[in-house]
Design a protein around this nucleic acid. Sequence first.
DNA 1: CGCGCGACATTGTTCGACAATCTGCTACCT
DNA 2: AGGTAGCAGATTGTCGAACAATGTCGCGCG
Lengths: 218, 218
Amino acid sequence: MSAPASVLPGTIADALRADVVETRLAPGETVTEAAVALRFGVARSTARIAIEKLVAEGMLRREVHHAARVPELSRDDIVDLYATRAVVEGAAMRWLAEQGAVPADALAAHRGIRAAAKDGGAFAAQDIAFHRALVAGQRSPRLARVHDQLMGEIELGIGQVQAHGLMSAMTIAEQHEYVLAAVIAGDGERAERLAREHVMSARDALLAHFDTTHRPED
Amino acid sequence: MSAPASVLPGTIADALRADVVETRLAPGETVTEAAVALRFGVARSTARIAIEKLVAEGMLRREVHHAARVPELSRDDIVDLYATRAVVEGAAMRWLAEQGAVPADALAAHRGIRAAAKDGGAFAAQDIAFHRALVAGQRSPRLARVHDQLMGEIELGIGQVQAHGLMSAMTIAEQHEYVLAAVIAGDGERAERLAREHVMSARDALLAHFDTTHRPED
DNA sequence: CGCGCGACATTGTTCGACAATCTGCTACCT
DNA sequence: AGGTAGCAGATTGTCGAACAATGTCGCGCG
């Protein structure tokens, strides 16, 4: 992650992150420093640092003197998040293709998604791992850092896509394969375009779901 | 900034940031929590938060159990930083052009640089303000956040460009004007290209300076 | 000369306290 | 009845002191 800090707050942040992605913490719920401190048996100062880490990632939001909340992505949030994600992941795939090598962890995660497509299991974690591994594998550590900062909210989105069955594991695996093929072929232009299209198709699935579950005036 | 936290650590971080950009803190110097706490008359915990903020921005670096240091950008750092910056600012200028309006603060900063071109004054702060205002003015808050994360190191670079006279204020002002013209004309494609070229020309100036001041084997 | 060991510096984490700020409710005044 | 002032509770923001963990540097000993 961008700011390593120390291990304890990081561990707590990881646990909370998992809670959010796997929807044990629903959007709208609040996370107070005292509650986190109690639950993990650490000082409030330590819990506070963990929460601030997640706020910086965009996985929690807070205003001064208010408890942190799990955000509900608004329509505008979704549009903005995925537009930015398309820019960053597009550039990452272009640069990855220019190297021509695909990281092993990305391939492992990809196999996991294909398996889920057969047995109908969960794939959110594998999907997240796939994207993270690809971006981490390209040559620019700073582009990876920038992507990491978006990952918090991206994970919120991926979690929703899976929780509501907005895209099948099969569809996702297919789109991933197109991108991988372009990367292996060393075709940066095509890799960038396909990555952007993949992101946009996830965005459209989320938006369609959003529009059917929210009244127009919401 | 990305994680507002509270005001006190933010204020201290701002003061330290100015120290770094204006080279009162030279690359290589260390910044300890105790020193910051003493200097600003705050608790070490508060100073620590300020330092961590700057570390997250890339304006300071630290390893665990070591004092934070003002980084000296390596050649690879410069190449990577400016490549990433080109992607982000390029996208920002494209989107800004699609809106067609230039933020007022950006114009004010631009006038400041032109003034410096005439009277030979400092322009680093204005240059930083110019880029920040432009990116903050486009429609995507997340792209702005991502840019903010790069700003710490970008400011290091801009500070060096000015401190060593690598580019004249006049040259910079001219390149800015080209970008502004494209934005006002609503030509996203051209705005993106010119922004990237501007970034690349700053990068090349820095690299040339780097190569003349470092032995090849460094 | 090299190696271990001990003093020192610095960060990592905890705890407890208090101030500042926000929310919602109550009670009073009109 | 209605609006408003202000009190009570919750929560964060900052402090200060303490101790543990870790890293650095130099000194002395073999």
